[in-house]
Write a protein that binds this DNA or RNA. Structure first.
Lengths: 149, 149
DNA sequence: CATTTTTCGACTATGTTGGTCAAGATGAGT
DNA sequence: ACTCATCTTGACCAACATAGTCGAAAAATG
């Protein structure tokens, strides 16, 4: 059930770009250092994210990466889905890769899988990178969010 | 993010045993046929489930498997965790395999991961196999559960 | 004893993960 | 025009996980 390293690296890279938020691009090497990501692997990942339209790049000296859209409009779920594939645990309840299983309509677990999918989607598709940044700010100020039980 | 075939097979096998609910055991071959599971693979899976205390077995002619506990007391999450490991997407928020990450207390994603974990746990750890059976009954009678949107 | 059924460990083929590496293209400054 | 920093691209690789299969043994029933 776990998220791949690659996906978590991608999320952290996007977070770093969201936090940077400046007209000058952020270099791969800087992202790698800040977020503790193997630099050679990060090259691959950022290139993939670029292909997905999540980030833009500038080549050459003084080049680097920017976020391709405002952090308020980019959900964590979008990045996760792009890198790791569907969020759903089984294809029959996935929106992005829907495929009926062999128990057409007779499946004992269909309702269960739907509820799991909905619960996950309710979190990942409603959390933007701007939300994460705000959370981090509040945590620094000593505020404890409502997720803590 | 998906569940392994093995895990889904295990869940279906347990469901079949829960549904059988009789003093006579259910044979591997019968479970395999009903739930469309490769029989040789199912042998391995049931043996593993037995090791986890989920099912009991009787050997020899007229042997087979029973559920080791009432279906009302067995949650789907327990089986999933046993077969596929922690439900949580990252170890730092997993109860069963907790391990701090390298960003001790400075992690931008900690709150996020917690919310995801809680959302998933709220479904899988609160759904028992008895619940699934009841759902299936109601679906047969044309009743549409509250999971359907 | 013969048959049915579980039990157990070894085996294997294929795919995924988590990277690394080398060479090239591009752009900014001198 | 040259140089240097930086992104770009595709190939490559080792280790591990997945999804099973197989054969032989042990136990219970009749």
């Amino acid at each position: 059930m776990s998220v791949s390293s690659k996906c978590y690296y991608a999320m952290r890279a996007v977070y770093a770009l969201a936090e940077h938020n400046s007209p000058e691009p952020l270099k791969i090497s800087q992202i790698a250092e800040r977020e503790m990501i193997p630099i050679r692997f990060l090259e691959v990942i950022l290139n993939q994210l670029k292909g997905g339209g999540f980030v833009r790049s500038k080549r050459g000296a003084e080049g680097g990466y920017f976020l391709a859209m405002p952090a308020e409009e980019l959900t964590v779920g979008a990045v996760m889905r792009f890198v790791d594939g569907p969020i759903a645990m089984v294809d029959c309840v996935s929106q992005s890769r829907h495929k009926e299983c062999e128990f057409h309509g007779e499946c004992h677990f269909f309702g269960f899988w739907c509820r799991v999918r909905q619960a996950m989607s309710d979190v990942v598709d409603k959390t933007t990178f701007a939300d994460l940044m705000r959370e981090s700010q509040e945590r620094k100020k000593g505020y404890v969010g409502d997720w803590s039980i």
